[in-house]
Amino acid sequence: MKAAILVFPGINRERDMARTLKLVSGSTPNMVWHTDHELPAGTDLVVVPGGFSYGDYLRCGAIAARSPIMDAVRAFAAKGGLVLGVCNGFQILCESGLLPGALMRNAQLKFICRDVHLKVERSDTPFTRGYNAGQVIRVPVAHGEGNYIADGETIAKLEGDGRVIFRYASADGMIEPNSNHNGAINAIAGIVNEQGNVLGMMPHPENHVEEAIGRTDGRGLFAGLTEALGRAA
């Protein structure tokens, strides 16, 4: 794996992401500054981490989406390169046109940090091959604007194409309003693009990869990616 983690001003989970990628894959990712125009040669995974790029001013992710580096990321994605966006990264991918829809304020209008359960809808993607379809994983969320929304046609297409990868669920995998902490439509927690190579998700799998710090449910995502891309020698 040769991952590149994008760093925008105000991003703050880039260290968590780098540590997790190193822990699970064995390779140290490159940190890529937002004003760069090119990704490091040989990059096979771009990660847009969480945080508050540009302070969430204007709209979450809106300013970062217009950074020079995002042109390179769009080109990379168009050629089938894998792109993972987490939390603010998901927002940035939506704002940059790589994923459809938008993230609104949480239904309760408050920032929420807690562990949630996700139902993994598919295991036949490079991002989720470390899980079984239908598996329930427990990972934390930490966001104020994670309420996913898109127009009816887009939602129908997302659902029809099987592009909803993660949904907020109860511990036993039921999709019900009480488990949908931010009010996302169809309890959507993560989606992929049409080609299936760009994933955006609100929860933070990178914060649940060590038994000693809670749980390891997030590990499957990075282990799966490592398998897909090849472990460091």
Binding site: T20, F111, I112, C113, A142, N207, A212, I213
Partner: peptide, 28 residues
């Protein structure tokens, strides 16, 4: 405390609600 991000950094060993919070120093 659910309105506070209490896990960023990946070092929060004991979250809010206990007697004292515990934060790992780097990799422990």
């Amino acid at each position: 405390w659910e309105q506070y991000d209490h896990i960023i950094g990946g070092n929060t060993v004991q979250r809010p609600g206990g007697d004292a919070a515990i934060v790992r120093v780097e990799d422990g």
